[in-house]
Simulated scan of single mutants.
Amino acid sequence: MLASIEQYQPTSSHKENFWREIGVPARGEKLYQALHQGLPFSVYNQLSALSGLDKKELAKVTVIAPATLQRRAKSGHFNQVESDRLYRFAELLKAAIDLFEGNSEQAKLWLTQPVRGLGQRRPIDMLATSAETEAVMSLIGRLEHGVFA
């Protein structure tokens, strides 16, 4: 028997669990506010753990200077620009995990290896600009849909 619309209670998606695990709202106004106010430093630690990147490498790919990272650890929050870079990395990590159907080890390997569709560049090296990040996300979308050209 089908449940009525009033009885329908959607379950949390894998996507929302990912965002909850790193401590960032999945979407909408709460996400925008969090990015404007600055993400808490704990997000950085969670991204490091989930991605398998050590904190030094994560700082490098998100273009956050070591001295800045130390200041943010003390203050407890990143600024808006740094938060946006961390969010871009999180989006890329999530998209790669989805591409490999939840296999985070395969996703991590793909992110850190040169990819032909990106001119032999590593996806994690393409986070410095939104245009580069968009190129990686576009490639992931094409791969998900079987479009290799």
Rank of each mutant, 00 (worst) to 15 (best):
K56T: 12
T62Y: 07
S42W: 08
W110L: 03
A49Y: 05
F89Q: 00
L35C: 03
L58C: 02
R121V: 06
V61R: 05
E82Q: 09
S83K: 06
L92C: 09
Q80R: 12
A67D: 10
G52M: 00
S75A: 15
I124K: 08
D125K: 03
R71A: 12
N79S: 11
G38T: 03
A49R: 07
V115H: 08
S51F: 00
G76N: 07
L127S: 05
R121E: 12
V61C: 09
K108W: 00
R122N: 07
E91S: 13
N79R: 09
V81A: 15
L109T: 13
H77A: 12
A67E: 13
V63M: 13
K74Y: 13
F41G: 02
N79F: 09
Q80Y: 03
S48R: 01
H77T: 13
A65M: 13
S75F: 10
V63Y: 14
E105D: 09
P66A: 06
A73Q: 15
R71D: 11
N45I: 10
R122Y: 06
A107F: 02
T68R: 14
H36W: 08
A49K: 10
Q46L: 02
R116Y: 15
A49T: 07
L39T: 00
L53M: 08
S83L: 05
S42M: 08
Y44R: 01
G76L: 11
F100L: 02
Q120V: 11
T112K: 09
E57R: 15
S75D: 08
P114Q: 01
V43M: 02
S104M: 00
R122A: 07
S130Q: 11
N103I: 03
N103L: 04
L39D: 02
K60D: 10
T129P: 10
P40K: 06
S48K: 00
S83G: 08
L35W: 03
I97C: 00
E82M: 03
A49W: 03
D84M: 15
L69D: 10
Q113H: 07
A59K: 09
S104E: 04
V115F: 07
E91N: 14
L99T: 01
T129F: 09
K94T: 02
P40A: 04
L109Q: 12
A73H: 15
Q106E: 12
F89Y: 08
Q80D: 10
L58H: 02
R85I: 03
G102F: 00
L69V: 11
R85D: 02
E101H: 10
A96F: 10
N79T: 10
Q106W: 05
F78C: 13
L99V: 01
L39S: 05
T112L: 08
L35A: 03
Q120T: 13
L109M: 11
Q113E: 08
R121W: 06
R72G: 06
A131L: 14
R72H: 07
I124Y: 15
M126L: 15
Q70I: 15
G102Q: 04
Q70G: 12
A73Y: 14
P66K: 06
F89E: 05
I64E: 06
A128F: 11
E101D: 12
S75Q: 14
G117Q: 14
Q120K: 15
A107H: 01
L50M: 04
